[in-house]
Each structure stands twice: as structure tokens, then as C-alpha cells.
Design a protein around this nucleic acid. Structure first.
Lengths: 344, 344
DNA sequence: TTGTATGCGTTATCAT
DNA sequence: ATGATAACGCATACAA
């Protein structure tokens, strides 16, 4: 029973017609008049035999796999605590379903196997690529661009012509830090969400710097730490900041995931939020509003980001020219209670 | 440049050999002696032309897509806050890479589109199925079983012969609740992780009941609420429990994700953990140890669960008979500080 | 309105 | 040691 599936040939034989007719009926080809009774019979027999056209054969002849590939530029070790991924999946699957396509998912380890998606593209295993979190040091990306393979970035890659959907990470971070400054803070620590190979990480850091500069607060590199997507890194970096005795009254942590860890490090030292240290996050993950105190954070429209990226890619796949090339979605600062009241 | 890829024909022509030779060289077919210089040249030219065999053509002839399908039985609305998914992905991708296969992912909405994976199976779009969180009311599963399509469940489906990898949800929950009872609690609330269509949810609830029964504590249905995977549901159900004035000194929340929400509801009422309400979770998600107080919870080896399930499936795919059919992985209660000290 | 023939790009079975 | 040829299952231009 395993392996030998029913083919269009079987259906044709059972229905007493040719394979062509079967194909015509099942694909509902327009401009072809078939006798209703024939159509009816074929349809019914196909149904009852459980016939489903072979995907490989169909892909081979149609030159489209009907699959889009999602690639995550995280090392496998980091993916398990990344809430952004599930939000991306939600948006993607929604759109993918609408277009009767499928989603293939993979991660690109920074070290090796960088060319996985190049291979998948060349093998036509996927029709298009969605790349979440492009890295500046990703060489395969430039090849991809040169070959003109349909791709959309969730995030940005300065200097490339890729279509992308993103938020303004820099301005958003600036907004968050400005909020802290407005509350009277001048010693503000910063823990980035990832290492500087990720464009989003450098942009958020730049936003932090801009806010400082605008307020005339000198930049102090001893207040800055680099995270790596995980809760644990948030804890470690905040602990390190504390261990070194660096003085600060507020912290901008560039990802809510890391905030969880950072807050734990604070609590461990009996430091209260927001009385001793005000906290601003980034992403507005589902749990942010349920933290104690509820977290003030930059709302990132993650699901929508994924939806738009997927729509854009599918638009390109359908050969449309008028699909807008690059989109920046709005963020907003969601003020809750982790920064306390305004001290004007 | 888009679409017209280089084929084995192109490579053969450029190398001055036949397509057969190209295939032989690139697939490193054993038992065939090719002149080293020919092999060398073919290899080099294929490399420099960026030739990658067409996946569809290869799948068509080899009858294997080299893809395994992961199906999540969550509605799309629930997936975005589900940390279990990312852990599953981590384990899966690791194994899938080892075997040079790919991963396709999809969700099965409870309402409709139940037969998605049946179609993917019949279309041979995937070689095997990994189903995370089987539901009792999933009819397509029985068809799948009847057709003998390779599948492994992450979770269990009583009454079916599917291979599966799971933990003993009942015993684990019982262990967690027993811990609470041992600490002197008798009024213990319970918020399940999902609705009763999910086998894991009913098993965990049963464990709760067993612990009560063993301790001679009467079951009180007013202490039980049903969650739906989300942080929000944890909040709502705990709030509801509180609103109704139900008395309890401890709560077993069958998923750490929901604990986040449940704890927020407690805090909102100025109830302290563990002094006023002791809390035990389930899953031991990455953030659990960083909660305040650090969460006592049942450690679920989620990544390992996925790894084993994937190994099992690939084992079946390779036609091996000796792959163990069903596995139960160990859990353990990680005692942290959300239950306070023993009040003996 | 329906059937025949061809090609999609590969692998596998033969010959040479 | 290498090349021609036949599937794999489908879609489709073309013939009937």
C-alpha cells in the first residue's frame, strides 16, 4: 500500500477516458468544453480513488514547485527561544495558504552551509526565498541577487537591491531611548538583540546612540553589551554590567526575549523595576504586557511583516511588475509600567 | 537569467561527455570506474557552471522528495506565542540536515483543511509526516494510518498504531501536583494547556486528578479551567478563577506559556507567589528559570523529542524494520522557587 | 469534445 | 569506461 499511488492513468482507465481529459477536468482548464457528464464522472472517480496529482511531476512540467522557502539566519542553538519566529510563521502560513502554496523552512548557520538556499534555488526546489534577518557577511546573498532569483528580505541589507519589508529599527530604538531620556535618565545601558553582523542589531544600537546625541548625552561604551537572541544572553549581559559596577538608572534592551533575562539579573541584585532601573524592550512579544511590571516596549508588527513579505514575494512570482519593492512598516512605543511615571 | 537554469545536458555538453557520465560523477555512483581526469573535469565544470540537479526531476524518478513534513495542530492564531514550536524546529532541523533532507511546515486548523497532509502525502510532496500534537477528532489521521504512509507522532493517539515519541504527560503532571500536595496544599487549581481534543491536555489533567486521588483530596471541578496554548488564556483563566472567589493556595498550570499570564492575573490581585499562591508549570521553557520567582516546572525534553521523532521517521523511510516503534522520554520536576519551602 | 504525442530533467538499464 | 534509451507522471499543443 505504501509507495504505489494512484496516477492520472489509473483514473483515466477507471473513468474510460484519456489522461488528458482527467487533467483537463481536474485543473478546470478554461476554454475547453467537456461534456458535463464526463466531467462529473472523472471528478467523482478521482475523488473516490483518492487521486492527487504527483507534485514532482507537476513541478517538473510547470517549472514551479509551488513552494516558498523561509530561511532564518540564526544558529540552531538560538532558535529555540526566539518568539519572533513563531510570529513570522503565523503570518507566512496565512498568506501561503491563500495562494495554495507550501512553506519550506530552514536555518542558515552563520559558520557554514551558507549556500543552502542558493542550492535550493538552483534546484528549483523552491520558487522564491524569504530571508529573515539578513546578515552583512552573507556572501551567498550577492550571488542570489546576481542570478535574479525571486527573494524578499524580512529586514534590510544596505547596498543591495533586494525587495524587503522591515521597520525602521533605528528610529524605533531612538524613540524608545528618547522616552527614557524624557523621563530624566542620562545613564542608560544598552543590550543589543544580536551581534553586529545582523543589520537590525546595528540599527537599533545606532538609534540608541542617536537619542543620546540628540539629548547631548555623551556615549559611553561601557554601558553597551551585545546579546545573541536568547533569554540567557540577556541575563548574562545585564549581570556583567552589574558586576562591573557600571552605574545606570535605565536600560534599553533591544529584544523582549532578552529583557526576561535582564530583569532576572536585576531582581537577583534586589534592584527594582522601574524604581531602581527603568526598562524598555523591543518587539512587544505576546508576554510583554503580562510581565511584572508590564513592559514598556517598541511594538514590532511581526505577523504583519511576514504577511507583507510573503505577499510581495508571491506578487513577484506571478510576474507582476507593479508590486512595491520596499516597505517600511510602522512601529510604536507601547508605554506600560516598566519605566515608571514621568519625572518632569 | 531567471528561470532557465543550467541542466545536466549543459554540463555534459560543456564537458564533452554524455548526461549519463555527469550523473555518474556527481552522484558518485559506486562500482563504476570512470577515468579520473573525466571525473575531475565534469566535477569542475559542474561547479563552475553552478549546476544543481533539478529537485523535481530527481524526485520524480527516485520516488522520494527528500522532504519531511511537520504539521502542527494549532490554529494559526495560537501558534505565535507557542515556544514549543521553536524547540521542535531546533531538534528537527538538526536531524534533517544530518540526512540531507528538507523540512516543510504547515499548520492544521482544527476546523477545516484537515486533509492537507493527506494531500501532501498522496502527492508525494513529502516522504513522511511528523505530526505534533495529535488530536482525537482528526479523521484524516485514520486514513493516513490505513494507507500506511510513514508517519510519526510527537505526542500520542490512543487506539492507533502510529509510531510516536512522547513523554508520560499523566505521570509528569501527577508528579508536579504531588509536589504541591507534599508541600501541604489541598486546594489546588488547575489550568490545562489546551482543550480536551488534545491528548496531552487530557493526560495532564488526568495526572492532576490522580495526584489528588492518591492523596485522598476530593476533586473539585470549580478549580479546573481549560487554556488554549496562549499567554492570554493563562491570564483569563486565572482571572476567572479569582473573580469567582474560588479558594485555592496553589495552582498547576499545564504549560509555562500560560503561567506567564496566570502569574500576571495573580499579581494584579496583589497575590504573591509563592506565599499566597504556589505555582507549578509544565514544559520548562527557556524563560522559566528567569521568572520571578524562578518557576518550578516539569522539564519537557522538547528538542530531544523532536530529534527522536525525526530519527524514527527517517529510520522508517530507509526501510529499516528494527527502529523502535514507540518511545517515552523522561521528564523531571525542576524545583525552583515558585512553590516556596516545604511546610511539613 | 476527446485522444495522441512530446517534453520537463533526472536516474537507471542496457549496449558498445 | 562511456553513451544511447527508457521510464517517472504530468501538462499541453496539436490532431482527429
Amino acid at each position: 500500500m505504501v509507495g504505489n499511488r494512484v496516477t492520472s492513468h489509473d483514473v483515466a482507465k477507471a473513468a474510460g477516458v484519456s489522461r488528458t481529459t482527467v487533467s483537463l477536468v481536474l485543473n478546470d482548464v478554461q476554454g475547453v468544453k467537456l461534456r458535463p457528464e464526463t466531467r462529473q464522472r472523472v471528478f467523482q472517480i478521482a475523488e473516490q480513488m483518492g487521486y492527487v496529482p504527483n507534485a514532482a511531476a507537476r513541478a517538473l512540467v510547470s517549472q514551479r514547485a509551488q513552494i516558498i522557502g523561509l530561511f532564518l539566519t540564526r544558529s540552531s542553538h538560538h532558535i529555540s527561544s526566539d518568539a519572533f519566529i513563531t510570529q513570522t510563521l503565523e503570518g507566512l502560513l496565512e498568506v501561503v495558504h491563500q495562494h495554495d502554496m507550501r512553506l519550506m523552512i530552514d536555518i542558515i548557520e552563520p559558520e557554514h552551509q551558507k549556500e543552502i538556499y542558493l542550492e535550493m534555488a538552483r534546484a528549483k526546489r523552491i520558487d522564491g526565498i524569504l530571508l529573515s534577518g539578513p546578515r552583512l557577511d552573507d556572501e551567498a546573498l550577492w550571488v542570489l541577487e546576481k542570478e535574479g532569483f525571486p527573494a524578499v528580505l524580512i529586514g534590510q541589507l544596505p547596498g543591495s537591491d533586494f525587495c524587503f519589508v522591515d521597520v525602521d529599527n533605528c528610529a524605533s530604538a531612538e524613540m524608545a531611548v528618547a522616552h527614557l531620556i524624557q523621563l530624566g535618565h542620562t545613564r542608560i545601558a544598552c543590550i543589543t538583540n544580536a551581534n553586529p553582523a545582523y543589520t537590525a542589531a546595528v540599527d537599533r544600537l545606532r538609534g540608541y546612540q542617536n537619542a543620546l546625541e540628540t539629548a547631548g548625552i555623551p556615549f559611553d561604551h561601557t554601558l553597551v553589551r551585545s546579546g545573541d537572541f536568547t533569554v540567557d544572553s540577556g541575563y548574562r549581559q545585564m549581570k556583567d554590567l552589574l558586576d562591573r559596577g557600571t552605574q545606570f538608572t535605565a536600560a534599553f534592551v533591544a529584544s523582549d526575549t532578552l529583557v526576561l533575562g535582564a530583569k532576572a539579573a536585576l531582581v537577583e541584585r534586589n534592584l527594582r523595576v522601574p524604581q531602581d532601573v527603568a526598562l524598555v524592550g523591543f518587539d512587544d512579544l505576546p508576554f510583554a504586557q503580562y510581565m511584572h511590571p508590564p513592559l514598556t516596549t517598541v511594538h514590532l508588527p511581526a505577523v504583519e511583516l511576514a504577511r507583507q513579505a510573503c505577499n510581495l514575494l508571491i506578487c513577484m512570482l506571478q510576474g507582476e511588475q507593479n508590486c512595491s519593492q520596499q516597505m517600511i512598516l510602522d512601529t510604536r512605543l507601547v508605554i506600560r509600567q516598566s519605566c515608571g511615571a514621568i519625572v518632569s
